[in-house]
């Protein structure tokens, strides 16, 4: 197992990633919902953008966030020597 300092660093990095992921998560859901009326003035392929964000846009971002987080953390595990055997 890695030393105490390394473990602390690992957790700090994890916290930062968590905050970043949740910030994006909040922006595409709550943020987009707050300004949906304004976003609706833009239309793409027939979709008013505000409606689209709630119906599909946010979902795409959520899925990407989850894959990103899994990849990033799996790499971090290895880097700090805390990956499972």
């Amino acid at each position: 197992m890695a030393g105490k300092e390394q473990l602390d660093q690992y957790w700090q990095r994890n916290k930062k990633i968590m905050v970043a992921v949740l910030a994006i998560w909040a922006i595409v859901s709550y943020g987009a919902a707050l300004v949906a009326g304004w976003l609706n003035t833009v239309t793409i392929f027939g979709f008013p953008l505000g409606y689209y964000m709630g119906a599909q846009g946010a979902l795409v971002v959520f899925v990407v966030l989850n894959y990103y987080y899994a990849r990033k953390m799996n790499k971090l595990d290895k880097h700090y020597g805390v990956a499972e055997d």
């Binding site: 968590m18 992921v21 949740l22 998560w25 859901s29 919902a33 949906a36 505000g50 409606y51 709630g54 119906a55 946010a58 979902l59 959520f62 966030l65 989850n66 987080y69 899994a70 953390m73």
Partner: peptide
């Protein structure tokens, strides 16, 4: 209409919380 999207976003966005804060 748009108000129903609360269910779409709510029931999918929860999985981001789950993945990042709880599951591992």
């Amino acid at each position: 209409g748009y108000n129903g999207l609360a269910f779409i976003m709510g029931w999918t966005g929860g999985y981001v919380l789950l993945a990042v804060l709880i599951a591992p």
